[in-house]
Design a protein around this nucleic acid. Structure first.
Lengths: 143, 143
DNA sequence: GCTTGACTTGAAGTCGACTTCAACTCGTAG
DNA sequence: CTACGAGTTGAAGTCGACTTCAAGTCAAGC
């Protein structure tokens, strides 16, 4: 199954942009920054991506959108490109990032609680027509 | 209870910084940007904050840390300062932000799933000593 | 054969939210 | 009395991650 399924799709930068949601600018930028290995070119010098590149770019996209800094993704990408032998280090990077994202989610949830309380408070008071009573004592006293 | 508990603490910018976790620079910046009403000064021109200010700054901090842009917080702060009569608009701002944060949390969770899978994958392979088998077919084929 | 649209490059610009800098004034402790 | 730490100001600098710009090349359709 994972064999020489040699149907290696050849994709233009525009197609890859559509598939990954990353702007063409960004794809070139990512290549320049070493997030993916130098992309092959056709006769006219245009980039030719494979579907493997798309897979990898999707991973990079998720790492970025979850807040991993570019230099760290770059480092990770380099380790992957170097091949076997540094799995422990890659594992560390991912594990550390997982923690970071969990912390992020926790912080957001905490903020969300407060915001949601405020939203509910406003909803109730607005519904009851008693919104005026909210500011007897300084700005926005809690319920 | 919420009465004339007139023990209005007078706090220096440094104390407020410690209480809110916001740098003194940031507090001045927020005042300049209109996130809080012009702070009173002592004889020597130094800012004198109240505990109400601290309350409000904590709210601002949560809005910021959950990704609300400064101009939007500023707008919200202005509405609050204007007093009664614009509750519906404030409600809209908060509700919209709540949605935004929920979306953010969702996106992060999605990324977290992928990252966690990878972490687990590495953990298993490393434990089994079969990490080498991970890169038979291009970068990081999934299990 | 000429326009159109997708692609190429390197350099420069943008954005938000601080952060740092330079040059000052105070009030208190030694 | 003088040094120190905390405060003041406006302006300028920083940071990351793009994004935009200028100036092209190339292949295909009309």
């Amino acid at each position: 199954m994972t064999d020489v399924n040699a149907e290696v799709a050849t994709l233009s930068i525009g197609e890859v942009s559509a598939l990954t949601g990353l702007a063409t600018h960004t794809l070139r930028f990512y290549e320049k920054e070493g997030l993916l290995p130098p992309v092959r070119r056709d006769a006219a010098g245009r980039r030719v991506f494979t579907d493997g590149d798309v897979e990898w770019l999707r991973v990079c996209g998720k790492l970025r959108s979850s807040g991993m800094p570019l230099p760290e993704i770059q480092h990770y990408a380099q380790l992957v490109r170097e091949g076997a032998g540094n799995e422990a280090e890659r594992f560390e990077i991912l594990r550390k990032h997982e923690e970071r994202v969990q912390r992020q989610v926790g912080d957001l949830q905490e903020a969300l609680d407060i915001i949601h309380n405020k939203v509910e408070l406003y909803a109730r008071r607005l519904a009851a027509g008693t919104a005026d009573a909210l500011w007897r004592n300084g700005p926005e006293c809690e319920s």
